[in-house]
Design a binder for these strands. Sequence first.
DNA 1: GGAGAAATGTAGAACGCTACACGTAGAACA
DNA 2: TGTTCTACGTGTAGCGTTCTACATTTCTCC
Lengths: 337, 337
Amino acid sequence: MQKKAAARTPRITIRDVASDAGVSVAAVSKVLRDAYGVSEALRAKVQASMDKLNYRPLASARGLRGRTYTLGLVFPDLRNPFFADIFAGVNAALERTRYQAMQGISTSASALVEAMIDRQMDGLILVGPNENNERLNDIAKRTPLVVIGHHDIDGAKFDAVNNDDQLGARLAVRHLCQNGHSKIAMLSLSAPVSTVINQRELGYRLEMTEQGLGGAINILRAPQVLRDVQLTIRKLLESKDKPDAIFCWTDLMAFEAISVATELGLSIPDDLAVVGYDNTIFCDFSQNRLTSIDQSGEVLGLQATRLLIERIDGRMQPDHFVVTPRVVARASSARND
Amino acid sequence: MQKKAAARTPRITIRDVASDAGVSVAAVSKVLRDAYGVSEALRAKVQASMDKLNYRPLASARGLRGRTYTLGLVFPDLRNPFFADIFAGVNAALERTRYQAMQGISTSASALVEAMIDRQMDGLILVGPNENNERLNDIAKRTPLVVIGHHDIDGAKFDAVNNDDQLGARLAVRHLCQNGHSKIAMLSLSAPVSTVINQRELGYRLEMTEQGLGGAINILRAPQVLRDVQLTIRKLLESKDKPDAIFCWTDLMAFEAISVATELGLSIPDDLAVVGYDNTIFCDFSQNRLTSIDQSGEVLGLQATRLLIERIDGRMQPDHFVVTPRVVARASSARND
DNA sequence: GGAGAAATGTAGAACGCTACACGTAGAACA
DNA sequence: TGTTCTACGTGTAGCGTTCTACATTTCTCC
């Protein structure tokens, strides 16, 4: 008779450890959880058996009663290497803890969030979600939640970790002004409106006005789709009031802008200065040399994780952490006299 | 008395559904699993209750008896946008199935793999692992396993999905030859030796020899670290026998190469032709215009997922899927006469 | 109309762990 | 000497599913 599935090595259970150590299952569980009421002798004995048998507790079984020691990360997409920085921060924060991060990707966080709750994640970190507060609060009611990149936190029942996007945009504009540019356009995102975009647009407007350039305010919006971005940029650069600088809401878009400008025979930064956002590794390449706003994804990830674990451990009142962005100047926005 | 944790909304369980529908728990479970012996009437009744109560089965509980409907992906790092393609392929394959993919990152797959097995993943996809066959077979003994990017499959107990890396390298060399280049160097990876690297180096050697350029074979190896890569490239480009073309084992390295060359005042492709590998989205930007070998990550991810689900469903004999790479020519390797 | 088969539903024992309730022994106190 | 306390272990009831075994009903066919 043919077996249906492979005869996999059976797993070592807590019972095996208990019988090997000659103690009760409950005792092993106590050791496992660092619970109260364990003598040094018992701990040593159990630990020895666990090591010997190479025992590992099964997360599902734990989850049925308590925690799974798993955190869920939800990213909107992965093409942007900025998200890798966030993940690195999360992993750094988790080093030497018993938690493990698992990541999923979906533009519509909803389905993925449900899937993660089904899988007993102890807590969730949502990056740049398109959900509104009501929906987020609803999630927070069901699982500990930290959101990265969401500015509307009035009445929020969850924690938030943000880059000061308004300031970031202001810094970009200010930097361009200082380098002698005045017709500064902004390339923004059209499709999924987010509070992050709003803040950056607001910062751009405010700073332009403050710099006396209110008349030159020019915000273009394109969807994420590559083709549309290119078209939008091309139209802008070929128009009568072609800007002499452009602030892009993401490095990826900035690279697009440089690409189109190059194709049109414009030289960077003489004919067009460019500033991006995120300060991804690609900014450093000399074919890009892209000035960018650094929002240190690693810090964002690290702090979000810290807050999440606090919350899992019982904190009830919402917390909010803000990272201050900074300009990393490179050749793409060099002085233009 | 202060509560320790939030009073979270209690979850709807199978029992709730059963009592709402006025049937047994077992009946609901049958409906859930599409098991044999369910009348249309019963199915409808149960389905209605599930919809009404918005019931979702808990993965941990399922895992304790059967499957969790979760697949684990293990990537070596995330900075390379190529991996996003693979993930996209996986997600595409999973569309309209009940499976969900969860991803973790770690250069040393070992610990992460254990963590995933602890979390009852139904199967694992390892991308570009540094493990040897013995170790991989050991993992395969414990859980269904598919490996992407691992060529040593003699006696393998797992499935493999590969790009034909040897052919890819040959195509790169052949393409450069056809475009009039002859002093073709290869920039390879030093630190974690992998069968992928080996195959590419082999392909490079073989094709160079076949093209009568055996004397010009020149393989440089640098670790992943950015600084070291730059130094290696710089040294190569400043040496007496500076090549007129360079084949890089990854787009990322190719961009580095372009960057360094640009800094040295060399022009691409006239002074130096460059070919990368992976055909990532960044190749298209006109500041890069990088010729690259496309190994279609999406197909890799898709096929790996297909094989994995087959294996979860009981297939025992190992399978192997190979994707044929192709050259995507751009300006970085244009004809040089 | 009755026997056997097929179809449909249910009970209840796991799965591996946690955590509550409790038992026991020795120490501290009166 | 008895009582109370504290420290340390153990027994066992679940957690939410799946799945085997079985009971009941309905068909099918002579």
